[in-house]
Write a protein that binds this DNA or RNA. Structure first.
Lengths: 156, 156
DNA sequence: CCACGAGTCTAGACACTGTCTAAATCTGGA
DNA sequence: TCCAGATTTAGACAGTGTCTAGACTCGTGG
């Protein structure tokens, strides 16, 4: 064959040493830390942008051009399944991923679509009155409105 | 031409007289009541099933076989734009339509995916504490859990 | 009665999202 | 070194929602 059509993308050791904490975290969750998974996790577990799966793909491909879409979806679903990530359905055709595992709510800017985290304590929900026949196990609050430009950054 | 490939589907007068109230409602909202729009509205404005756009299409096509998918989407968006219907994004790849215009919340059964309306007063939300930079204009609560089979019917 | 313009509907193309499969590749252990 | 199992890739596939061109209907005016 003339050219290496298949790059050596699989290399589980090819991860910067500074990611030790991330590697431990993945391993503790029972996730084999391949280069692709680490790259995806490194971005998605440390962002406050609430990216969609495609956002993650676009972003991580900058450093891992051979990354396939299927791997991104697989990895995101794996992270969700293992409890390192949460998925929210906040906009049509847009599942959004959120590394914030603490109980919290969301604010969506009507104009920009930007999603901001809202501390759990900032909204008082319930006590839910008696709802006959409904066994409530989770409660999510979505606020909508407009964010002032200054508040456009959920975290510094 | 050999055969009527194009049926006479457009017939704005071809609407049962018993739908007078609906016709008035549509006209008041500035919506020209075509047969297709009336058929869609008649179903979607009087259901508690929280159907998706495709559900609406499947259902209304029973009585209007030539109804196109684009017309359903156009009509649903029109009803939403004119305030006769609400759209909720409660599940991935599934926008759900809700004719209940009163303020209310939703309960989603984890197992069946069924959506139940919850009276606004049954859940105490807020008072939202001071959220600097966020101008909150709407607040939606989504409860998740399990519904007992007996409670599976939001309305009789 | 007929022509015309505005509004509506249909069929299909299109873009996007998420899942699945076969084949190639890599890893760790014997 | 070799092998079994896990992982990744590319592409096919299905579902959802939008858009466009062309056909159709209605009301109005000549």
């Amino acid at each position: 064959m003339a050219s290496p059509t298949r790059r050596s993308a699989l290399c589980w050791k090819n991860v910067p040493a500074s990611d030790d904490a991330l590697l431990v975290r993945l391993r503790d969750a029972g996730i084999q830390p391949s280069a692709q998974r680490v790259a995806v996790a490194r971005y998605v577990l440390d962002t406050c942008d609430h990216p969609s799966a495609d956002d993650v793909w676009q972003r991580v491909r900058r450093t891992l051009p051979a990354l396939s879409r299927a791997t991104v979806y697989n990895t995101l679903n794996l992270l969700v399944r293992q409890g390192l990530l949460r998925a929210h359905v906040l906009a049509p055709r847009r599942v959004v991923f959120d590394p914030n595992l603490e109980r919290h709510h969301h604010f969506i800017d009507d104009r920009t679509g930007r999603i901001h985290d809202v501390p759990y304590a900032a909204v008082t929900v319930g006590p839910v009155g008696p709802l006959p026949g409904l066994d409530v196990r989770a409660c999510e609050v979505v606020l909508r409105g407009r964010a002032s430009p200054r508040a456009a950054r959920p975290r510094g």
